[in-house]
Nucleic acid binder design. Structure first.
Lengths: 123, 123
DNA sequence: CGAATACTTAAGCACAGGCTTAAGTATCCA
DNA sequence: TGGATACTTAAGCCTGTGCTTAAGTATTCG
């Protein structure tokens, strides 16, 4: 099957793992080498490398190699786009609640143009 | 291996699937039945049910059955907690940048107490 | 040069995720 | 009552994820 894969898919998936979230959390306090990032964990370096690859492919982390040391940094724009996706949905929901509140409070029983309410609900 | 599983794990994992994000998106515009939610997709109803279970176990969606119809709604608090996690990391990162900016701009070359900078970076 | 360091790659394994089909149960309506 | 409707559950399949071990390469230092 052809799988449609978004940037958002990769970002959410990357953040769904606690080890990777811990790595992101560490990187918000400044860049770090692969060994630095691996130090807090009981996993092998290879495992951490794989987590870093997931984070990089999601655009959440970037890295560059200088000599034999690879330094990783977070990429805040990717973080932002995930945040924005959620924020948009939450505000859509809240606006809807406001609109419902107005309809319930408003003393003006103007007739609806369509048989179903504008919110799509069926009371 | 014992797997430590957070609420945040489940929420991010739930949102990592495009079908499930589409369901969440739909629900921000108002409650819907399982069939309503399934209608836009080429999948079987069973597949959608499984997606809904993931969303419910992540706390992102709630549902109640009335007669033979199950009506689903989003649970905005779970959405908020995911948003907050990201927001906190992003602001940590931005505050760090501000601090660095001040250090670079500030004309006061007061001696650092430690050999490494407070940000943990090694220039 | 040669050994230690810092990653990097590859293979393999156990298990979870996302679908399907093929049933089943519980309403609702004529 | 009987059939259509709206889920619900279970089994199976295939792929992907998260680790491991066991190598490898490239730098740096004595």
């Amino acid at each position: 099957m052809l799988k449609y894969s978004d940037d958002l898919d990769k970002a959410f998936l990357a953040l769904a793992d606690p080890t990777r979230r811990a790595i992101v959390d560490r990187l918000t306090r400044g860049p770090a080498s692969v060994s630095d990032l691996a130090a807090p964990f009981a996993f092998t370096l290879a495992a951490i490398m794989q987590h870093l690859r997931v984070l990089e492919q999601a655009g959440l982390v970037s890295s560059q190699k200088q000599g034999r040391v690879r330094t990783c940094s977070i990429e805040p724009e990717a973080l932002r786009s995930v945040e924005d996706w959620i924020s948009e949905r939450r505000t859509t929901w809240e606006r809807r609640l406001d609109r419902l509140g107005l309809l319930l409070d408003g003393p003006d029983p103007a007739p609806s143009p369509s048989p179903t309410s504008p919110t799509g609900e069926r009371p």
